[in-house]
Every structure is written in structure tokens, then in C-alpha cells.
Simulated scan of single mutants.
Amino acid sequence: MSPGAQQSDGPAAPPLRKDAERNRERIIAAARSVFARDGLSASMASVAREAGVGIATMFRRFPTKEELVDAVFSDRMDAYADAVTLALEDPDPWHGFVGYIETACAMQAADNGFADVLTMTFPTAKVLEQRRNEAYQAMLRLIDRAKATGRLREDFDPSDLVLIHMANAGVVNATGDAAPDAWRRVVALMIQSLEAPARGPLPASPGREPLYKAMLRVGQGATTPPPGKSS
């Protein structure tokens, strides 16, 4: 390479790095807006349009939708995990348990994308899944504490929290801005059904493993475009 070429290449590199970082930030901001409005079914192309970048730029920054989901929702998952920690610090375990459910469901209602995230799993989204697993371990302690008070029904299973999030996400997505507070009534009904003494026995829990498979299947459906269509 000639000295002239070295001289012209040197100054050009830093602006390219800055441009790349700006594009990344624009894409994340756009994805937050698009996913919050349309959920995770929104396409990568729609995010690129919102960000004002080409689809090639989009895929250079985020080769897969799971990587974009990881970047967009890591802070939301941090807040979700913090809600569990706060619930554990409540001197009244039942109050802490109820407060956690209300907070998590409110987070779903405020963001259609996050409503979907809590009902799916994304194995390659390492940061997101690590925080989810940390929150799950804390929730196990929260459930045990609430049961120890005698306020939470004994047959409540940790997998029931996943069902609550799935039910809430369905209500949020179905009612939208036509009845934006409908989820509050549904959550209140669910909470009342959890309090001891139980009004009757429950059907068997599906268990964590089958629900994980369901969350994985739904997550794959949200991040993989249908045949013949681009993401």
C-alpha cells in the first residue's frame, strides 16, 4: 500500500465507527417504538424503515431478530428482575407477591413488545435470558415466602406465573386502546383466585418444561419470518 493510501485510509476510520454506533442507537430506538406498538410480530424491515436505515445496515448491526430483541429489552428485563427483588424485600410476603404480579402485568400493558417477551424465550439472547433466569430463581423464593404465610394457596405452581403472563398478554393484545385498562380487572380476578383458602382444587399444572417448550415455539415464530417473506 502506498503512503498516499495510508494517509487517506487513516482519518476515514473513526467517522465510520461513529456512524456505525449512531446507526445502532437509531435502530434500537426505532425497535423500541415499533415493538412497543406492534409487538414482536413486527418485521425487521418495519424497524429499518422507522430507523431510516437500509435493510442491509439493519442486518450488519443485528444479524438476527433475537439479537435485536436482546438489545432492546435487556433494560426492561432488568426492571422486571428488580420488581422481584423489591417484592422479596417487602416485610409482608403476600403483599410483595401481589405487588410483583401487578407490576409485571403493568409492564406488559405498557409495552406490547415486553408483553410478548414474558411469554417467549430466546436461547441466543444471552443477556435477556440470564436476567430472566435470575428473576425466576428469586420468584421461587417469593412464592415459598407467600405460601409460608398461609395467604397463597398451597397448590400454586411456579409455572402458573407463566400462565398469568400469557393470559395478561392475550388480554392486552386483544383489547388494545379500545379498553386499555381491561387487563387490571383480569389481573385482580386472577390474584383473588390465588389467595387461600382455595375455593377448590386446580387441574394439574402443565409444569415448567412443557411451558418452556411453548415459550420457545412462540419465540421462534416471532423471530423467524414465514416462508417466502423477509424478516
Rank of each mutant, 00 (worst) to 15 (best):
V34H: 06
D19V: 06
A42N: 04
V47P: 00
R26Y: 01
R24E: 09
A56F: 10
A29Q: 14
G52E: 03
A48L: 09
I27V: 12
A45R: 15
S46H: 13
S46Q: 15
T57H: 07
A45C: 06
S33E: 15
E25T: 05
V53T: 10
M44L: 14
I27C: 04
P15T: 00
S41H: 12
N23V: 02
D38M: 12
A36L: 05
R32D: 04
I28M: 01
S33Y: 10
A30C: 05
D19C: 06
A36P: 00
E21C: 00
R32V: 11
A30D: 07
R49Y: 04
A42D: 01
V34G: 03
R22V: 06
G54N: 12
V34N: 07
A51V: 02
L16C: 01
D38N: 15
R26Q: 13
A56W: 07
A30W: 06
G54I: 09
R37Q: 14
M44T: 15
D19N: 10
R17T: 02
I27H: 01
K18D: 06
F35G: 04
V53K: 03
R37G: 06
S46G: 08
V34L: 03
E21G: 00
F35T: 09
V47W: 05
D38Q: 15
A20H: 12
A51D: 05
D19L: 15
A45N: 13
R49T: 10
P11N: 02
L40V: 09
D38S: 14
R26V: 01
L16T: 02
A30H: 07
A13I: 15
R32C: 01
S43H: 08
N23D: 14
S46F: 10
D38A: 13
A13C: 08
I27R: 02
A42Y: 08
V47D: 03
L16V: 08
R22T: 05
A13K: 11
R49C: 02
A45D: 14
A29S: 14
A48R: 03
